[in-house]
């Protein structure tokens, strides 16, 4: 159980003069054992912030801390990330068991652990030999989740993990994520542009716009009583069957 903290994090792509500032001085705390949902329009910098946390995007300024210690300084990052696209998330040449075993620390019984993790995400342990192309999108995302858990992470970053999935499969993945997060008390940064999904999964919501966090607070509070204009706009825009669209 760890607390993930972003301190004045800035990420700039390209040169100082011609680049884009994808993340602009973000301060955000993901409390230990809780889920922070990050919402915002596309291009607002959500993914970049997530990738910065796991070291896939360079920090231009600021620090990312785990329990107060900079993650860059840690020898192994107890952070794992799950990606948006289930079709590119797994090596097509590796059995799913091998994929799941990859991030495991040395000296564990890989076979048993792979089986345990697959069972954990709702897949039969004997599917370990299967190749990704034998699995549906939802099953692949669950394997990706198992792989993330194999690294014994204390923090998981999930970037739009259900947006490439069909609605009928989305529910299965969300159930597994929610259930595991609660059971293992994982710290989680959950990114989605779907407010209903974020509402279902998160304890805290952060709203991002143009590289900045414009509002952050407990889910019920932010969604029922939004303070920022943009949050209200977002909530307005959530489709509600039967509700008038307005002009």
């Amino acid at each position: 159980m760890r607390e993930l903290t972003f301190e004045d994090v800035t990420v700039r792509f390209g040169s100082r003069r011609h680049g884009t500032v994808a993340v602009d001085g973000v301060n955000l705390v993901v409390p230990a054992g809780q889920v922070v949902g990050l919402v915002g329009e596309s291009g607002s910098g959500k993914s970049t912030l997530a990738r910065a946390a796991v070291g896939l995007a360079p920090l231009t300024a600021g620090r990312i801390l785990l329990d107060g210690r900079p993650v860059q300084a840690l020898k192994t990052r107890p952070l794992q990330m799950i990606f948006q696209d289930p079709y590119s998330a797994l090596d097509p040449r590796m059995s799913i068991g091998a994929s799941v075993a990859e991030p495991m620390p040395r000296g564990v019984d890989r076979r048993a652990e792979v089986g345990r993790l697959l069972e954990l995400v709702g897949l039969a342990a004997d599917r370990a030999g299967a190749r990704p192309d034998e699995l549906s999108g939802g099953q692949r995302q669950r394997v990706a989740l198992a792989r993330a858990l194999a690294g014994r992470p204390e923090v998981i970053v999930a970037d739009e993990i259900t947006s490439a999935l069909d609605v009928s499969i989305q529910g299965t993945v969300l159930n597994v994520v929610r259930e595991l997060q609660r059971r293992m008390r994982l710290t989680m940064l959950f990114i989605s542009h779907n407010l209903a999904v974020v509402r279902y999964v998160s304890d805290i919501v952060a709203v991002m716009r143009q590289g900045r966090i414009v509002e952050c607070g407990p889910v019920e509070q932010v969604l029922l009583d939004p303070r920022h204009e943009y949050t209200r706009e977002l909530l307005e825009a959530v489709p509600r069957p039967g509700a008038p669209l307005g002009n």
Partner: peptide, 26 residues
């Protein structure tokens, strides 16, 4: 550019291992 490479990097797998295990076989 596939995500499974990013996942391997996040898992702390070295570049040479990534090349040998993931890139070359594919």
């Amino acid at each position: 550019s596939r995500d499974f490479i990013a996942a391997a990097r996040v898992a702390g797998i070295g570049r040479l291992r990534i090349l040998v295990r993931h890139v070359l076989p594919n």
